[in-house]
């Protein structure tokens, strides 16, 4: 187990390094730069600016400094476009916001998706089952960027129940719509997957064995069926988290939460390489670590996998 964790880490770390190096070169070699504006700066000023940002040195030296600063002091350097802020400050102000509603969104996905899938499987062809099928199709058709405007239309503009955007220090009213808007389609995906695997498990021979023992239905589901039925859901959560991060960029922009997604998009417009690079690294580290945790969790839960490691 420990061995496996180390091996997975040994894969994740070079991956991150490769991504950093690749992104760094891509950003520096791309045409134009943060300081190319309509009116070209006088060469002397330009040289000055470049020196200030350490961009007059050879690329590999810049890369080295960049990585060194991240590793030793967790310093992603200054922002190129927001003169008075560093990338660290941008991350520090936006990341907690995104993480907060992202967390609640994940809670929503699991707390609603798993029971819904289980109930739909247990009450095959019942109201809950149809509700779930409906929801699955609905979420496929109404992705977050269609759902979010509709929600604002209803809950803010028509009924005035919830604020249509902003953050306000993370009061719950401001979290509801971002969390639901981000999670709905994945909630439906989790429900559908859980239903499918639950149905399969309930038809498996070992559940028949459990029935033959005279166990009550409740015990059969909780003790025997739930764990194997949830394993595929766990695998599915990896890609879901990756997709949710993309979704969070949308949510940040649409609801003006002040999360890092907005900075990421702004960074693209202003060609703010240091912000783009910093946030891209944060996103990658986040997804890779979530995937790592999920893999370890899976290995820990499934005795067969655990032994194979």
């Amino acid at each position: 187990m420990l061995n496996y964790s180390l091996r997975r880490l040994a894969f994740a770390i070079p991956t991150i390094f490769a991504l950093v190096i690749f992104a760094f070169y891509l950003m520096r070699l791309a045409p134009g730069g943060p300081f190319t504006s309509e009116k070209p700066l006088p060469p002397a000023v330009m040289a000055n600016v470049l020196e200030r940002y350490g961009m007059d040195e050879p690329l590999y030296v810049q890369l080295f400094t960049y990585i060194k600063n991240i590793l030793c002091c967790f310093d992603f350097g200054p922002s190129f476009s927001q003169k008075d802020r560093s990338v660290n400050q941008i991350i520090a102000s936006g990341f907690p916001v995104t993480l907060t509603y992202g967390f609640w969104s994940a809670v929503f996905v699991l707390i609603c998706g798993i029971p819904l899938g289980v109930i739909a499987a247990l009450r095959h062809n019942s109201f809950w089952d149809y509700l779930m099928t409906g929801l699955a199709i609905f979420s496929q058709i109404f992705p977050n960027f269609v759902l979010a405007p509709i929600m604002v239309l209803l809950f803010t503009l028509s009924w005035g129940l919830l604020p249509g955007g902003g953050w306000n220090g993370g009061q719950w009213q401001y979290i509801v719509m971002p969390a639901i808007g981000l999670g709905t389609s994945y909630m439906a995906g989790v429900a559908r997957l859980t239903r499918g695997s639950m149905l399969e498990v309930l038809n498996s021979p070992f559940i028949r064995t459990a029935r033959a023992k005279g166990l009550p239905e409740r015990t059969i589901i909780w003790r025997h069926a739930l764990k194997p039925a949830l394993l595929p859901t766990l695998t599915y959560m990896g890609p879901v988290f990756v997709y949710m991060i993309t979704g969070s960029v949308f949510i940040d922009v649409f609801f003006s939460t002040g999360g890092i997604g907005q900075d990421f998009i702004d960074g693209a417009y202003s060609r703010d390489y240091s912000v783009l690079l910093g946030l891209a690294i944060i996103y990658c580290v986040l997804t890779l670590s979530i995937n790592l945790v999920l893999d370890l969790l899976y290995a820990w839960i499934d005795p067969k996998v655990r032994d194979a490691l």
């Binding site: 498996s204 070992f206 064995t209 459990a210 033959a212 005279g214 003790r223 025997h224 764990k227 499934d302």
Partner: peptide, 28 residues
Amino acid sequence: SNDELNQIRAQKIAMIFQDPMSALNPYM
């Protein structure tokens, strides 16, 4: 009923299943 059967299963009548590979819960 299922509840009545549960009083008989395993206690009075037990079954040995055909395929030992799949009859046991692999996660327990």
